[in-house]
Structures are given as structure tokens and as C-alpha cells.
Simulated assay, not measured.
Amino acid sequence: MSDIQTSTVSEDGFSSTSRVGDFDLQIDALNETGPSPNETLVATYASCFLPAFRVGGQKTGFDDLGKIQIDADATVDGDDDLTSVSFDVYVEAALSDEEVAEITDLAEDICHVHTALRDGLHADVNVYGGAF
């Protein structure tokens, strides 16, 4: 049995609705009715990294880092494949360079999306024609 199950449906065109637990997420490859898959991936990455950064802070003695904001930038190539992602992390608490490096290293280890973005992790695909 899997740990995560989602269902994604597209009636036509390039927009889809993904059901994740009790939540619906609109994603549109053409970026007309919702964010694109790449935008959603970058936002998901930042949304995972931010709490991982908080946990990294707690593990290094910073129980309250205050407000944290991540501004993410990503580039894509001519095939619309992500080629780079960068985060600018703004933290309310004052941190030394050494503390930032230690917390960032921990956050990278803790963030599940950071771990998942590696070569070799691809979906196993099965296609069932005539299903509807």
C-alpha cells in the first residue's frame, strides 16, 4: 500500500484538477487557469524547505526564528524543463554566517522535496486505455 495517493483529472485541454486528501489543486500547463506544473513544483519545494529550515533552527538552539519568507526563482530551458532553482530566505531572527550554514545544511537533509529532486526518481507509468 502506498503512503500518498492523489487523483488528477483533465476533462479536456491542458488544465487539470488534482485531488490531494480533502483539497483540490488547479494546475494548468498553459498557465491560464492556474499555476503551471513547474511553478507548482517550485512552490512545493519552497513550502517544504521553509518548515525544514525552522526545524533546522530548533535543532541548533533557535526555537523562534520569527517570520520566514522564501522568494524562489527558477529557470527553464527551451523544452520547459527546470534547469535551476534558487531560494532567497528572509529570516526575522539575526543569524551569523555559521548559523545560517548549519541550519541550511539541516534543512536540506530534512526537506523531503529536496531529497526527491534527484536523478533516477521517476514515476512508474501504467496506461489503461478505454477506461471511461
Results as ranks from 00 to 15, higher is better:
F87S: 11
L106H: 08
L25A: 13
I68S: 02
L50M: 10
D71A: 14
T115W: 12
A93G: 10
G61F: 01
I27G: 00
S36V: 02
C48S: 13
T115N: 14
I68C: 09
E98D: 15
D105I: 01
E92Y: 09
R54Y: 15
L30M: 13
S47R: 00
V85E: 03
A29M: 11
I110T: 04
G57T: 07
L121N: 15
D81H: 11
D77Q: 07
K67Q: 14
L95E: 11
T83L: 05
E98H: 04
F53P: 00
D63R: 04
T60D: 11
L106M: 12
L65A: 05
V125C: 11
T83F: 10
A116Q: 11
D63N: 15
T33Y: 08
A29C: 07
T33D: 13
N38E: 10
A93H: 06
Y45W: 11
V91C: 05
D71Q: 13
A72K: 02
V125K: 09
T33M: 06
S84H: 15
A94G: 10
V100D: 02
A94D: 15
D64S: 12
C48E: 10
I68N: 06
H112E: 14
P51A: 11
C48R: 05
Q58E: 15
A101G: 05
S86P: 01
A93K: 04
S84T: 10
A107K: 00
P37E: 11
Q58R: 12
A46W: 03
A29K: 02
T60F: 07
L41I: 04
V85Q: 03
L106W: 05
F87L: 11
V76G: 01
T44Y: 07
F49V: 01
F49N: 00
T83C: 03
E32F: 05
P37R: 01
E32I: 12
G61A: 11
Y45T: 08
A93Y: 02
A123E: 14
A29Y: 08
T60G: 02
I70T: 07
L117E: 10
E39A: 13
D97Y: 09
A107H: 01
D63L: 04
S96A: 06
P37A: 12
A101F: 03
V55Y: 01
L30N: 15
L121D: 14
S47L: 01
T40W: 05
L82S: 03
L30V: 09
I70D: 04
Q26T: 14
Y45F: 15
H122T: 14
V91S: 05
F53T: 04
E108H: 15
E102T: 15
D124W: 02
T33V: 08
A46C: 09
A107V: 04
A43M: 08
T104S: 12
V100L: 05
D71L: 07
L25W: 05
Q69I: 12
P37M: 04
T44N: 12
D109I: 00
E39S: 12
A116W: 01
L117G: 07
D97R: 07
